[in-house]
Every structure is written in C-alpha cells, then in structure tokens.
C-alpha cells in the first residue's frame, strides 16, 4: 500500500485552520480513502476532523499517510505537500 511520511509544517500543528484545510483536502480526493497515523497509535481516516484533531500532531510531528486504489499516489502526494507547508503563514483563501 502506498504511504508517505511527512513532518507537519504548520506553526500551530495539525489544529484549527491547518487541520480544517487538510481534512477538506482529504475529503476532496474521494473515493480514494486516506488514513493518517502518528507513531504507534491507530491509523485514522484523514477525512474525519475529530479523529485528525485527536492525533494532537504538532509542528515537527512525523505522520504517515496511507491510501489504496486508483489515484492513491497522486492523492498522497498532494496531501503530503499540504501537510509539509506552514498553512498558518498562508492567507485565508476567502480573504
């Protein structure tokens, strides 16, 4: 199964705005199902805001993304890129 290991780049970690942007992006790659995992904890669906928040990932935390099926690699690439960026430093899209 394709996976990507990424270090969270957002200053506030995978919380608040960065978490919302990531979960939205993960939901947008459906039907590809993406999971996200921190350390030895159970992998959780990346399109679940509550589960992603509960990971408690901070800036610098290493997370593993995994997905299967058609388009899995493209989906993982785009989500990994998103996680690595500092989303807190980027302007809100809707101004």
């Amino acid at each position: 199964m394709p996976t990507r290991t990424v270090t969270v780049g957002s200053a506030s970690g995978l919380h608040a705005r960065p978490a919302a942007l990531f979960v939205q992006a993960a939901a947008a790659v459906a039907p590809v199902k993406v999971t996200i995992q921190v350390g030895e904890k159970r992998a959780v669906p990346a399109n679940s805001m509550l589960s992603v928040l509960s990971l408690g990932a901070k800036k610098g935390t290493e997370v593993v993304l995994a997905a299967e099926g058609d388009g899995a690699d493209e989906a993982l690439d785009s989500l990994a890129d998103l996680l690595a960026r500092d989303l807190d430093a980027e302007e809100p899209a809707n101004g």
Binding site: A19, Q24, P45, S48, M49, S51
Partner: peptide, 20 residues
C-alpha cells in the same frame, strides 16, 4: 468577520464528521 467565519466552518466540519 473572516476569523469568525473560519471558526464556524471548522465547527461545522466537526459536526459533519464521517466517524461521528
């Protein structure tokens, strides 16, 4: 207020959670 809107949308995502 853009900040308030963002907070409200993040809350909406929590209530719209597939795991929930």
């Amino acid at each position: 207020d853009a900040t308030v809107a963002e907070v409200l949308r993040a809350e909406a995502m929590m209530a719209d959670d597939p795991m929930l």
